[in-house]
Simulated assay, not measured.
Amino acid sequence: MPRPQQPVRRSALAGLTPQQILARYPPGRCEPLRVLEVLIELYNTQHTALEKTVSFKTRQERAQFLRRFFRDLKAKAGFSTAPDPRSLRQKHVQAMIKVWQHEGLAPATIQTYLSFLRGLAQWIGKPGLVRSPAFYGMAQVDFQRHENAQYDHSWLAQGVLASAIIEQVRAFDGYVGASLGLILAFGLRRKESVLCRPYAHVQEHETLGPCLRVTGKGGRVRWIPVDSAERHQALRLARQMVVHADAPLGDPAHDLRHNLRRFDYVLKKFGVTHAGLGVTAHGLRHQVLIEHYTALTGVAPPVRTDEAVVDKTVDRAARRTVAELAGHARPRASGAYLGGMHSRKQRS
C-alpha cells in the first residue's frame, strides 16, 4: 500500500511564488509523489483552459487520477521508478495509454485522463506535451464527444409519468421524493436539490421577485423565479422535510455524501435507471429545460423534432436563457439538453 504523502505546510510557504516553492524540491532528490502533492496544492484549483477555478469534484477526481497515474507508471507500465512529475515525457503518456487500452477503458475515459494530464503539463511548463487522441492512434469515431444531445433524455419522451414515480418515492423516502420534486420544478442538479435550503434559499430578487437562489458548479449563483403553482408546491413539500428554517433538504442525520448515495439507492430501487425505466433523475432536468425552450420559442427543440423552423435570433436567445436556467456559463452548453440547431432551413 503506497505511503501517504505529507501535506504541504502552507505556513512555511507563505509569500513564496510557485517557482520558489518548487525550487525547495530539487528533481532527483525528492520523492516524485511528494512533488506531485506540491503541484496539486499549488495548481489543482485552476481550469485547464479558462481563467477560473474548477469544482471540488473536478479537483478531487484530477488529484486522485494523477496520484494513481504516477504509481501505475511503475506498477503497470514497466518503468523502474516513477519520474519526478516535472520530468514527465511523451514516453510516459504513451506507455499509460497502452495500459488503459489493454485494460479496456472506454475512449471517453481515456479522453478525460488526457485532459487531466494536459492540466499537469501546463503546471510544469510543458503545455504542448499531451497531444490529441489521434496522435496516440485513437480513431476519431472512438474518442469524439457529442456536445449536443443526440436524443431526448426527458421522462416524458420515454413515456414515464414523473408525478406518479415521485409520489411513490416520496412515500418511501420523503427526502429523496422532495429532491425529485425540486428537480422537476426548477431543473436542479441532483446535488443542488439535496443542498437546497427550501426556506433560506428563497429570497427576494431586486427585479425577478421571489426566487430560489441556487449555487451551482464553480460557485455560480443563479436566481430561479418561484413563479408557478408547481414551484410553490415543490417548495412546500420540501419545507415539510426540514427541521429548521436554515436546514438543507438532505436527511440531517447524515452528511452530504451519505445523502447522495441514499438518493441513488432509492432511485435504483424504483427503477429510475437506464437499465430500468430508461430514465435517470437528470432526465427531469432535461425535461424542464426542453419545456422552457419550447415556451420561449413556441416550437420544440431539435432534440425532439427536426421539422420546426425557428428564427436564428430567437433560437440563440432561447438557448442563452436555457443555459442560464441550467447554471451554465456558456450558452452553447444548452445543446447538451436541446440538441444542435434545427437542421432544416431556418429563417435568418
Rank of each mutant, 00 (worst) to 15 (best):
A82R: 00
Y151H: 14
E41W: 15
Q64R: 14
L13W: 09
Q60S: 15
A95N: 12
Q90E: 15
H47C: 12
I40K: 03
D315I: 03
C211H: 07
A63M: 06
A253P: 00
I21R: 11
Q20E: 11
W123M: 07
K191Q: 14
A308P: 01
K91R: 15
S55F: 05
A164D: 15
P85M: 09
G335R: 02
E324V: 06
G128L: 11
V288Q: 06
V303H: 05
P331M: 09
A149P: 00
V160E: 08
P18I: 04
R213N: 03
V242K: 00
V242N: 02
R24S: 13
R9K: 11
V54M: 08
E37C: 01
P331V: 05
L105D: 13
V8W: 05
L39V: 09
G159V: 07
I97G: 02
R24P: 01
F186G: 00
A238H: 02
Q90H: 13
L120I: 05
Y337S: 02
G335M: 04
Y337D: 02
R170T: 12
R190M: 11
F186Q: 04
L260G: 03
V314S: 06
Y43Q: 00
V279S: 01
L256N: 04
L42D: 11
Y199W: 14
R145A: 11
R236M: 10
Y136A: 04
A318D: 01
G78V: 09
Q6M: 09
Y199V: 11
T215M: 13
E41D: 15
A14R: 15
V8A: 12
G283A: 07
R86P: 04
R220M: 10
F263T: 02
L73T: 02
A300G: 02
Q287N: 09
L296D: 02
A247D: 05
Q150E: 12
